[in-house]
Nucleic acid binder design. Structure first.
Lengths: 356, 356
DNA sequence: GGAACCGATGGAATCGATTACACGGAGGAT
DNA sequence: ATCCTCCGTGTAATCGATTCCATCGGTTCC
């Protein structure tokens, strides 16, 4: 592969001049500029980013360490991060931690070894050692979605409290009184917060959240299924199951169907994190939608600010409730257009709970 | 950040010895080895991968340029690629082309500038100029899933012919005679092949594939919806719609529901590419499953072979039919366990086609 | 007319590693 | 005792860029 030396030789100039011409430095004569252009063209020269990075000490690359790529929410987040980064002249290297702290650490170290300019992390657990080291060492860093309390790093996330209140109001309005939640891992902030917000919202309606109505999940579909089965085995099963992420909601849906029960007639279902597929399930699932695209954008901007040595502020954006049919006939407001278009033919059978 | 020089100073040795100790070179005394280890520990030294790459001319990084990350099939592919690469000591940088040739080119150039050791591509169109240049220039390269005819690059993909034949047999056995397909872009190999395989399989049953039963899609949900609507507007609509990928299948499902029709009673649906969500939709969708994990693995292995200067052979793995409920009551064989567990309560209403 | 200045260019140091080559000393063979 | 090996180590070149500093010819200013 042709190097800058070859270009210099071809153009009959020094490497210094070629470099300046390539970087748009002002004091290069038009003639030289032209000859460089021609030589570059002739040789198909492309600057070696590795060499440049070594010299300039910047890679124009961002690292993104994510909890689970297979989760559509994170996939979308990754996509929006890459888009914004590209717009700002950065590349993104994604590391999938698969909810495993050791893998998270592996990716953080690898990325740091590659001298990425900044790190975007959605921490899997309370914080793996390598990650904390990086934060302490002053690597430009921003947390997305999840964060670690007590670590001095900006956080870009969405606040679901208001949306959860809206959800509980919606459920209460439909007559539901026994509300259950499938929580995420307690080690993650999102795992805890969503339960807290839910309990708080219930309190406003004089409802409580008994321990039996809190299922412990791990943000994977299988755990949602198990938790739901336990709910259904209760002497007094809940009217509604609220899953703290989309994968657990699908597990829940599956568990309900496996018993021959129907959503929402026999039991209602709602989820945190709206995803395109919820429009296509039957029934369409009522969910709390995060402004994923904006989150990715804000996170990249904050990180780039940090890289530039400026503050890089934390950002919190509101999530919003998207009402569909999985909790019962929607009220007058808040329904998405799809909730109308997706309405199936009316079921002639009365609401009933079949006993297995 | 501490460099190898700092380590050398701390250990009272030359950088050469430190480097040798770090790389497990045999002729380093145990004493020196030990002092290096101590110095590394004390300084928290991590070798600069950028500098190493410049010197050794290898980055131990693979590039993966994918057509659409938001498509679960590709997400899973990316994940398995990263896993296998990690096992082999490589990192992976993913570029999302979003089915746009210009973006594909952007990523290929960026990756090449970063001097990745090898490139895995699932080409978006007939081949963007930058990609063809790379192939010609001898960059170690392997195509995954899709490929470009006439370019001398190993291809790792799955062959769906047998599975499509099985599907057609299954459909024919259920009494379906008017079979339609939603094709992918003609510029992609997968777009063309799946139609060919379908037509061929139909031929074996004396059935033809009229032009009106070929919908043109672009592998996105919206195109699946439009194509299906056109099918339903036909004076003689098809009995079955076979979507050439999972996103178009979801669009099709949506279009069918929007008319108040039911799957499979009014019209059957099948898809290429099985994804976890098809188990959760109602009805569960019959699909052709690719051995995605194995494909990713084989692709990485082939690429690493190429990087090592060896052959790196093409691999073709068979896809297989997964029968669920979206085409009608499953026959005696091939049904997945989920097709039983997901069966909902029987519908009391007779099969009917509502006129809009 | 000479000093100061400016624009364009080249030489050479530098980034942090790897590695060919040289060298000194210990140990074995003769 | 002398020479040859071989081991462990250091010196320095190198990878491909960027950039400081020096140089040189030509203006401009006083």
């Amino acid at each position: 592969m042709a190097s800058i030396k070859d270009v210099a030789a071809e153009a009959g100039l020094s490497v210094a001049t070629v470099s300046r011409a390539l970087n748009g430095h002002p004091s290069v004569s038009p003639a030289a500029r032209h000859r460089v252009r021609a030589a570059v063209e002739a040789l198909g020269y492309r600057p070696n980013a590795v060499a440049r990075s070594l010299r300039t000490d910047q890679t124009r690359t961002l690292g993104l360490v994510i909890s689970d790529v297979m989760n559509p929410y994170f996939t979308e987040l990754a996509r929006s991060v890459e888009e914004e980064a590209r717009a700002l002249g950065y590349s993104v290297v994604i590391g999938n931690a698969d909810e495993r702290p050791d893998l998270q650490d592996h990716h953080v170290t690898t990325l740091l070894d590659r001298r990425i300019d900044g790190l975007l992390v959605s921490p899997t657990d309370g914080g793996s050692p390598g990650m904390l080291d990086a934060a302490r060492a002053g690597t430009p860093m921003v947390f997305v979605d999840r964060w670690i309390p007590g670590v001095d790093v900006p956080v870009v996330r969405s606040d679901g409290r208001a949306a959860v209140r809206d959800l509980v109001a919606h459920l209460h309005g439909l007559g539901h009184r026994r509300l259950a939640i499938i929580a995420g891992p307690a080690a993650t902030t999102t795992g805890r917060e969503r339960v807290d917000a839910f309990r708080e919202a219930l309190g406003a309606y004089g409802l409580s959240l008994p321990g039996a109505y809190i299922g412990q999940g791990d943000f994977q579909a299988e755990s949602g299924r198990r938790a739901t089965e336990r709910f259904l085995d209760l002497p007094e099963p809940p009217d509604v199951v609220f899953a703290a992420d989309n994968l657990m909601a699908l597990g829940a849906l599956d568990a309900v169907r496996a018993r021959g029960l129907r959503v929402p007639e026999d039991i209602a279902l709602a989820a945190f994190d709206d995803i395109p597929w919820f429009v296509h399930t039957d029934p369409p699932v009522t969910a709390i939608a995060q402004p994923t695209r904006d989150l990715g954008q804000a996170a990249v901007r904050a990180l780039v600010e940090r890289i530039a040595g400026r503050a890089g502020e934390s950002v919190t954006l509101p999530a919003r409730l998207v009402v569909r049919r999985s909790c019962g006939e929607p009220g007058g407001s808040g329904g998405s257009p799809s909730s109308v278009r997706n309405r199936p033919t009316e079921s002639p059978s009365p609401v009933q709970r079949s006993t297995p």
